[in-house]
Design a protein around this nucleic acid. Structure first.
Length: 714
DNA sequence: TTTTGAAGTCTCTCC
DNA sequence: GACTTCAAAA
């Protein structure tokens, strides 16, 4: 959900863009520069695309399915298709480009701009959720949604679910009653896949089948709570959108008629609900283009189903299907290996990826003695490649889960190699950030029970019972703005109560639309909160600097509401910047989860922790389907590099799951014999001078680890 | 009723 | 190894 211009304004944090699109929804004012664009050469599509890409890009009206293998120029084709539509005279604001992440929307619209000029800025682009948000802000009221709803992120939703769980009495001793995260997961799965809750329980949570009725009761309560408190969760965004466009109403027609062409990227990762939305949006025309690769479907955990891509021709009769099979990214040796990896999977649209990029080195399979050896190998090799002229930002280290890069991060920090981390634990999930935001949220939405609860519990002398009493009293008073002030706390909470009342009053009287108002509000909150933070945590410096950063980010938003919505939908993507290289550094190494790496490419890629139980993750080993998804994820990771691929795995892992001892680990099952045949092997041993000098070595390293934990942990 | 300490749970991927 | 939940002490 962004335009190129807003991206530039937002800077590297990647937030700040949502607002600009909210504000420039349809009445866009065209600058005079547009005319200069008209004069620009028209694009020579035939010269710049291969025949299949050309067919897809210049496809006229009607449904189109592009099956795009890894590295086959999928983005390029989509960008050219947008360009083609614009050159045909379609108005840019009548094109909707739905992408999977905010990052890919930014990239595509940026590239489209280079092709056809600034006109493409007016194309509406963004994730399903961000687009839903924009539409609901505009049309939601007509559908009975309050105008000022607050978006809950996942952990907010879980917390609210917990309130329902507690209220219905399930927090008592009942053994093995599902926890809030599980409750929410099942709920979300139900909404996104439309599979009935009992079926989900039987299939994936047989141990909780006996609680079937309790699930329903909690969900009913949760739903009521949301509407009473003006809250909307991620799933609601999609659900309401679907309901809006599926209804037989003038409003539905109006929304569906906003766009003449809809393009959807990463279609293999959409779910049933999203498919319904698309059908609704296309009720007046059938100009839908979807791009996907069934071999790269890696989001079934959030309800995605490859049925959407497989059934597309049936759902949209007469759909043209264009496969893209020429890989432009990787060298032949890399392609050989990745083709073997994916050949073990059953896929429905079989593609034969080929490349003209013959030559190049075979991918490396690196056996490291242990984690440290693996880290050292990766860092050394990165430095070598850098010496050879590969910029840092052309290299990436990929792993299954965010925490697996901890050792590497320490080493990179110690060696002053700047890096940026994608995915994994997010800034916003840190407890202290959520604490501060809770203040802003109750100002924005006084009924936000979850935030009230969080905030009250922070105060000395206020515990669960007192917090509940205060909230009940406010509910009784109809959530009037002075309800908290009139609440009479028990004696030991009086001081805290008085202080809070003072703070909230001060904040309420602040103008909320002035320049930098949100930053000011946070500063004011911190006059109270920083002391609490110092009390609660040992290491406060990294946490305080997180709050500094939050203040800075807030400066980019004109209102509290815009700030909070954007944080839910487009959280700051990278948690990095340990003091050096922050801000101005462009040439940074990328550390990323395999999921977050999808759709990207680098010159050199390291896939670390290729250990069975890590990648594939141990959690997936129970079902064949999940292992298949892990295989596709490995395929995604290994198809990212253009020229250099390293797959590394440590032999000895200090694995606490198996009883705090060193254990021998095995290479990932996906790197089987056939795959290994296409690779060259290297073994990295423990260094000769094993233990570092105790006087110089260990101390700072230990310190750094603590610092990282303080930084990322809650 | 709140706070603190200890036992217990489960490890992810993302909008 | 970190977070949640439970039980006992203040």
């Amino acid at each position: 959900m962004t335009t190129v211009r807003s991206r530039a304004l937002a800077g590297r944090s990647g937030v700040g863009s949502l607002y600009s699109n909210l504000m420039h929804d349809d009445a866009r004012v065209y600058p005079s520069r547009i005319r200069e664009v008209e004069a620009k050469r028209t694009t020579d599509f035939a010269a710049e695309l291969n025949p299949a890409q050309l067919r897809a890009a210049t496809h006229a009206d009607g449904p189109l399915l592009i099956i795009a293998g890894a590295g086959t120029g999928k983005t390029r084709t989509l960008v050219y298709r947008v360009a083609h539509l614009l050159e045909r005279g379609i108005r840019p604001e009548r094109i909707l480009l739905l992408t999977f992440t905010r990052r890919s929307a930014q990239e595509m619209l940026g590239r489209a701009e280079r092709l056809v000029g600034s006109m493409s800025r007016a194309v509406h682009g963004g994730t399903f959720h961000a687009t839903a948000h924009r539409l609901l802000r505009r049309f939601g009221q007509a559908a009975g949604l309050p105008a000022d709803f607050t978006i809950m992120d996942q952990s907010d939703a879980e917390d609210l679910m917990q309130l329902s769980r507690a209220k219905l009495g399930f927090s008592e001793k009942k053994k093995r009653f599902p926890k809030k995260a599980t409750l929410h997961q099942v709920y979300s799965r139900h909404v996104n896949t439309e599979i009935p809750v009992p079926a989900i329980l039987s299939e994936d949570y047989p141990q909780f089948r006996e609680y079937e009725e309790d699930f329903s009761r909690i969900y009913a309560d949760y739903t009521v709570r949301k509407s009473e408190r003006n809250l909307v969760d991620y799933d609601d965004l999609l659900l309401f959108w679907a309901m809006l466009v599926e209804s037989e109403s003038a409003l539905a027609d109006r929304i569906a008629s906003l766009y003449d062409h809809i393009l959807v990227d990463e279609y293999q990762d959409t779910n049933q609900l999203q498919s319904r939305i698309l059908r609704g949006m296309c009720r007046a025309h059938r100009n839908i283009t979807v791009v996907g690769d069934d071999a790269q479907s890696i989001y079934s955990f959030r309800g995605a189903t490859i049925r959407n891509i497989l059934d597309f021709p049936a759902q949209f009769e007469g759909a043209a299907v264009v496969p893209l099979e020429e890989n432009y990214r990787s060298t032949q040796p890399i392609l050989d290996v990745t083709n073997t990896v994916i050949s073990r999977a059953e896929e429905r649209y079989t593609k034969n990826l080929f490349t003209k990029r013959t030559g190049g080195e075979k991918p490396w399979l690196v056996t490291a003695h242990d984690e440290q050896a693996q880290t050292r190998f990766v860092v050394d090799r990165i430095l070598e490649l850098h010496e050879e002229g590969v910029p840092l930002h052309e290299m990436a280290v990929l792993f299954r889960a965010g925490y697996m890069s901890a050792d590497l991060e320490i080493e990179l920090t110690a060696r002053s190699i700047p890096f940026e981390k994608w995915g994994g634990i997010k800034f916003l999930e840190a407890a202290h950030v959520k604490d501060v935001l809770a203040f802003l949220r109750i100002l924005e939405n006084p009924r936000d029970e979850v935030s009230w609860y969080r905030l009250l519990m922070l105060m000395p002398g206020i515990g669960e019972a007192t917090a509940r009493g205060a909230i009940d009293s406010m509910a009784l008073a109809g959530w009037a703005s002075d309800a908290f002030g009139r609440y009479e706390p028990p004696p030991r909470a009086r001081a805290a109560h008085a202080e809070l009342v003072l703070l909230l009053d001060a904040l309420r009287t602040n103008p909320t639309d002035a320049e930098g108002a949100v930053t000011m509000e946070i500063a004011r909150v911190r006059r109270l909160y920083d002391d609490i933070l110092r009390e609660r945590y040992d290491r406060v410096e990294p946490r305080l600097s997180d709050l500094d950063q939050l203040q800075t980010i807030a400066g980019g938003y004109p209102s509290r509401a815009a700030f909070l919505s954007a944080l839910a939908l487009e959280p700051p993507q990278a948690t990095q910047d340990f003091g050096f290289g922050a801000g101005s550094e462009d040439d940074v190494l990328i550390l990323s989860t395999a999921h977050s790496a999808k759709g990207r490419e680098w010159d050199a890629v390291f896939v670390i922790w290729a250990v069975d139980g890590w990648f594939p993750s141990a959690r997936s080993l129970g079902s064949e389907e999940q292992i298949e998804e892990e295989r596709r994820l490995m395929y995604v990771a290994m198809t990212r590099p253009r020229n250099h691929l390293f797959v590394t795995y440590p032999l000895n892992v200090y694995d606490t799951r198996r009883g705090a001892d060193y254990s021998m680990d095995q290479l990932s099952r996906f790197i089987d014999r056939g795959v290994r045949e296409g690779m060259q092997r290297v073994v990295v041993d423990r260094p000769e001078s094993a233990p570092p000098d105790p006087a110089a070595g260990p101390l700072p390293v230990v310190d750094l680890r603590a610092m990282l934990k303080g930084r990322f942990g809650a």
